[in-house]
Amino acid sequence: MDNERFFGMSRTSRMIAIETGWYERVKKGSIYRYIFDAADFELEEENAGYHVSRRPVIPMEVQRIDDLITAILNEGIELRITPSLQPLREQVLKSTVNFSMIRMRNARQE
């Protein structure tokens, strides 16, 4: 039911939501994707999909990603842009969908 509510209008099961005020930063920003051997990691937080290593690890590869919006869309992820994340946050917290809100401290406070 919750998956239908959040993802029923699209064919994806993953979504990234950003606030309107962050659009230009995402559009112009870059990130680095570090590729590691999965055997070195264990699942720490199933809901958010966080994996950790208990020992130092060296990446097998590092990829710079400059066009973040295109990269998100090419991964089949839905990108939502909203004036405020707070209404979505409240609904997601009451739902059964898996989520990560690791950067919510950067969201507008209403």
Results as ranks from 00 to 15, higher is better:
R105K: 15
E4T: 15
R54G: 06
S95M: 10
M1Y: 08
M1K: 13
E75L: 13
S10T: 14
W22H: 14
L73C: 04
T96M: 02
V92S: 05
A48Q: 06
R25F: 08
Y50M: 12
L93C: 03
L79P: 02
A17P: 06
E75K: 13
E78C: 08
P87Y: 05
L68W: 09
I69C: 02
F41P: 07
F41I: 12
V97K: 07
R54S: 10
D67I: 03
G8L: 10
Y50D: 07
Y23C: 00
E45K: 11
Q109A: 10
V52N: 07
E46C: 03
R33L: 15
P59N: 04
P56E: 14
Y34T: 05
I102H: 13
D67C: 05
I69V: 15
S53R: 09
L85D: 01
N106T: 08
A107I: 07
R103V: 01
L68M: 15
I102R: 11
L43Q: 12
Y23G: 00
I16A: 04
E78R: 15
P59T: 08
T82S: 02
M101G: 09
T20Y: 00
F6A: 05
F36V: 11
E24G: 02
S13W: 05
I65Y: 01
V92H: 07
G49P: 05
F99N: 02
I65W: 03
E19P: 01
V97L: 08
M15K: 13
A48V: 01
Q63A: 07
P87L: 11
D40A: 15
I69N: 04
M9A: 13
D67F: 04
I69K: 07
I65E: 02
I102N: 03
L68A: 06
R55H: 15
V62C: 07
R89K: 14
F6Q: 04
V92T: 08
E61T: 02
V92G: 06
I102M: 09
E4N: 14
I16Q: 03
V92F: 11
E19Y: 03
E61K: 15
K94D: 12
L88T: 06
I69E: 09
D40V: 01
L93S: 02
V26E: 00
R11T: 12
L73P: 00
L88E: 02
A107R: 09
E42Q: 14
E110N: 09
M101W: 13
D37I: 07
T12A: 15
K28D: 10
D66I: 02
G21Y: 03
T12R: 14
I31G: 01
E75F: 03
D40G: 03
